[in-house]
């Protein structure tokens, strides 16, 4: 029952954030406008702002936050390391590399090639995670203790590559890349909702059916092998799902770190270790965190907008350091 109460509080927070989001911005609305919208009496400008600008952005941030959180939860389960996060281990860098290739070879702006950019970003992120994963598989067994370190090293290497390429960029190209790395929610229109949200939901559904296995991965590998579980296969499936979730998310959201670290961590603090509960609470808290950060970025220095990724990093960085110091291990 106490868990239910906590869930209700989180959902109320989420609703509050979403409502504030809908009502605030350069064109601020009154609660009455929302009611008018529901009863089909709203003016065209209100409808435009809500439907075309704010709704898709909220949906994208909500779902991407949830996806990043679930991706982080999976990585933490597989690596048996609570500090794992898709951003920290190089998904963002890999996606960034995809973005660089896009800018270099396809276009310096995203208007004509709406889908090519997220696609390249997705492929870049996915490829990076797979590389990291196979590097940590050297010697036949997955070494979770070095997984994170390999991830950080790979992220640095890929970032290096990114900068090599950027030396050839002009100003507009550079600005575009910076928009990605700052974690600007660039995919904030309906087409981006359509190309990301359904896939994220499908992948999350696949993860849902592996909750049992995820819970069991807390046991030592030898024990699971003894149970007849194909541990390596299980880990590969999960890591691919995790990589898909995070690279889908950053391909429309831009480089966002730390959500995958913080959301599962808060979930564990609030709800304990039950994997099914963690699955849902991580999704919710991930959504709250990213929509919340987006809202803060919009309101704190209004009318100036702070990129969402920067807000997340400003909060997430110290949080990560605190965990790191507490754990004294990587």
């Amino acid at each position: 029952m106490r868990n239910r109460m906590k869930f209700i509080i989180i959902i109320v927070m989420l609703i509050a954030i979403v409502l504030t989001h809908l009502l605030t911005g350069t064109f601020s609305l009154a609660p009455g406008d929302l009611l008018a919208l529901l009863t089909n009496q709203a003016g065209e400008d209100v409808e435009l702002v809500l439907f075309e600008f704010r709704m898709p952005r909220i949906i994208v941030t909500l779902v991407c936050g949830a996806a990043l959180a679930l991706s982080g939860l999976i990585l933490q389960v597989i690596s048996k390391n609570p500090l794992a996060d898709p951003g920290i281990i190089g998904v963002n860098a890999g996606s960034g590399f995809g973005v660089v290739l896009f800018i270099m070879f396809i276009s310096g702006s995203m208007s004509q090639h709406l889908y090519a950019l997220p696609l390249m970003s997705f492929i870049g992120g996915l490829a990076t995670v797979l590389i990291i994963f196979f590097l940590s598989f050297m010697g036949g067994t997955f070494k979770s203790n070095i997984f994170i370190l390999i991830g950080i090293a790979t992220a640095m290497g890929v970032t290096g590559f990114v900068y090599v390429f950027t030396s050839m960029f002009d100003e507009t190209q550079m600005e575009m890349l910076n928009r990605y790395f700052a974690g600007n929610i660039w995919g904030d229109t309906w087409p981006f909702v359509y190309i990301s949200v359904p896939y994220i939901l499908i992948v999350a559904a696949f993860v849902f059916f592996r909750i049992r296995e995820m819970g069991m991965l807390n046991l030592d590998d030898e024990m699971l092998i003894g149970f007849g579980m194909n541990v390596n296969k299980e880990k590969i499936i999960l890591i691919i799902l995790s990589a898909m979730l995070s690279s889908l998310a950053v391909s429309v959201c831009g480089a966002i770190s730390f959500i995958g670290l913080i959301a599962p961590h808060i979930s564990r603090l609030l709800f304990g270790q039950d994997m099914k509960v963690l699955f849902f609470s991580s999704l919710l808290i991930g959504g709250v965190l990213l929509t919340g950060a987006d809202l803060l970025g919009k309101l704190v220095l209004a009318p100036t907008i702070i990129p969402t990724g920067i807000v997340v990093a400003l909060i997430g960085g110290p949080y990560f350091l605190r965990l790191l110091l507490k754990a004294r291990q990587i």
């Binding site: 069991m216 024990m223 304990g272 270790q273």
Partner: peptide, 15 residues
């Protein structure tokens, strides 16, 4: 089907 294992670590799930 045919083997059982006990290790030094108890390997129980807390949940």
């Amino acid at each position: 089907n045919d083997l059982g294992f006990i290790f030094q670590e108890y390997n129980l799930l807390d949940t």
